[in-house]
Design a protein around this nucleic acid. Structure first.
Lengths: 301, 301
DNA sequence: ACGACGCCATCACAATTCCTGAACGCTCGA
DNA sequence: TCGAGCGTTCAGGAATTGTGATGGCGTCGT
């Protein structure tokens, strides 16, 4: 039994007429006749009484008509539901984070994505640049914010902004620091990040240029934690200048007037997934939030 | 879209494997592959992710799987329901009555039919032999009790019993009747039936044999009514002897000791419907109730 | 690192099914 | 009595579906 048997059954029951039913079903009358006959033989039930005026449902046929309609309706539901999610993004978008939500404008990103793709579940995974890139490569993340250069050939990335960095100093060390002398700074304790963080590279470059190395004390792989350490007087650290200045209002911390290289905030994903609708949706939303003109991607496939 | 698409979809989703699914569905792996492909193209939705280990549902596919199962279940319900009523008698059996329910053993007939064919609706239509035969011919009745000969070539009939008739006389006329003299009887008023009733034939034959005709007063086409008329003193009438004797216990009526010809009680239906399952069920039940050995009907298709 | 294995997609061809158009039997109404 | 309308049947043709072999791709074990 196939759906066309049921469709024919219901149509003939409604029209009480093979010829009219065949017209409604855009086929020939013998075909309709064969459908009914095949269905009756498979069921072992006579569905219609053949009269000179047409086809009239038998009591058994009338009993079965409703069930046939229900089956057709269920199949129709399936189709309709499929059509309704045809152009919808379904699934989960896992985004890696490398710094605080506010700076990454997560609220706007989430709001835009959820509005445009209500069936797309979004997961933000806290992490760091160094942890997120391998996670991208093994598929634990779909996309990620990263800082610094992104020369991995497997990854596509978009620059969102340049992060201006500065050396954050605890207030209690203000007098012992004095003017910004690199060699003097190196002798103070530092709160540092893991080597795979872009800030680490900035810090290392700063001292290597002057042939010295900082005294390391504590590692904090999250800039919120790092800032807290600095404010607590544990040592110096590298943070975004705007963050330091913001924190200075309520914490014993200030930014050294030392010029540091900037670092790019990027959004990265696997190149192989560049045409994945979920990735494209994420990039498109990101380009809105960050006012980029980037997503001029070719409409592949 | 046809049911086999859905069946394949669900099976592949369950097996997560085209080859295993094809084995479960007793077909080849390329066929399964084609089903899935066709379904995906019709829906515009990718249902599976092809992995080196097999087929894995996409989120959209998972969303649709339930609906597909529901559609299949609905179709299965249809089939199962059809099978369950396959050998059941469905519909209405309209039986014409020509006399009282007790004499026709209707209660037993109804009980047996309802027990054996719970979905068969039974209608008893009060009438008379004369009215029931045309009703049979035009299809207003499926079967009918009739009295008398049944020489209609369109009708098949079974003799259930012989009705012994007698002349019913009101008590108040007992003295004026005296011995059973036909000529004398003819001069009394008669409650008669319509000419198409078998009793009418008996009455006419009785008088024609003696070259006289009765005085007619009232027609009563139902023997209950006729008996009531006789008991009320309206005139003489022909009834079953057993009925008169039964009525004599509580009504001013008695049976003349005059021998009358018997009349056959029959059960009749259209010959063309001899193999109609409903008719056969009725005849079969009737033969039980009346202990007949009649229904030795050929098991024609 | 390399070969073997398992999976799915594809292809050309065979088998089946499905549909078509015409003819037939039947009933009803004119 | 005849014609119109309806469903059934039939043979032939068209379309769909299924088959077996092949190939690409990835993984796993050695």
């Amino acid at each position: 039994m196939e759906l066309y048997h049921l469709r024919t059954f219901v149509t003939v029951a409604e029209e009480q007429h093979l010829t009219r039913a065949s017209e409604r079903l855009f086929t020939s009358q013998p075909a309709i006749s064969a459908h009914i006959k095949a269905l009756e033989e498979e069921l072992g039930v006579t569905l219609f009484e053949r009269t000179p005026r047409g086809m009239q449902l038998t009591p058994a046929g009338a009993l079965l008509l409703d069930r046939a309609r229900q089956a057709l309706a269920a199949a129709g539901d399936f189709l309709q539901h499929a059509r309704s999610i045809k152009d919808e993004l379904i699934g989960t978008l896992r985004i890696g984070l490398n710094t605080d939500a506010c700076f990454l404008r997560l609220l706007e990103l989430q709001g835009g994505l959820s509005e445009r793709h209500p069936r797309l579940e979004i997961e933000f995974h806290a992490g760091s640049t160094g942890a997120n890139i391998p996670a991208l490569r093994v598929g634990k993340l779909d996309a990620s914010f990263v800082s610094g250069e992104c020369d991995d050939p497997l990854l596509e990335s978009y620059v969102l902004c340049e992060e201006e960095l500065a050396v954050a100093v605890p207030e209690r060390m203000r007098e012992s620091i004095g003017p910004a002398d690199i060699h003097a700074l190196a002798r103070h304790p530092w709160v540092f990040t893991s080597p795979d963080c872009a800030y680490y590279g900035v810090m290392r470059a700063l001292f290597e240029a002057h042939d010295c190395a900082p005294v390391k004390t504590v590692m904090a792989n999250q800039d919120d934690a790092l800032r807290t350490m600095v404010a607590g007087g544990v040592g110096l650290g590298i943070l975004r200048r705007v963050d330091i200045e913001e924190a200075a209002k309520s914490a014993p911390i200030y930014a050294l007037p030392l010029e540091l290289p900037t670092v790019s905030l990027r959004f990265a994903h696997l190149r192989t997934r560049a045409n994945d609708p979920v990735i494209r949706a994420a990039v498109a939303e990101l380009s809105r939030v960050w006012s980029l003109a980037l997503p001029v991607q070719e409409q592949a496939v």
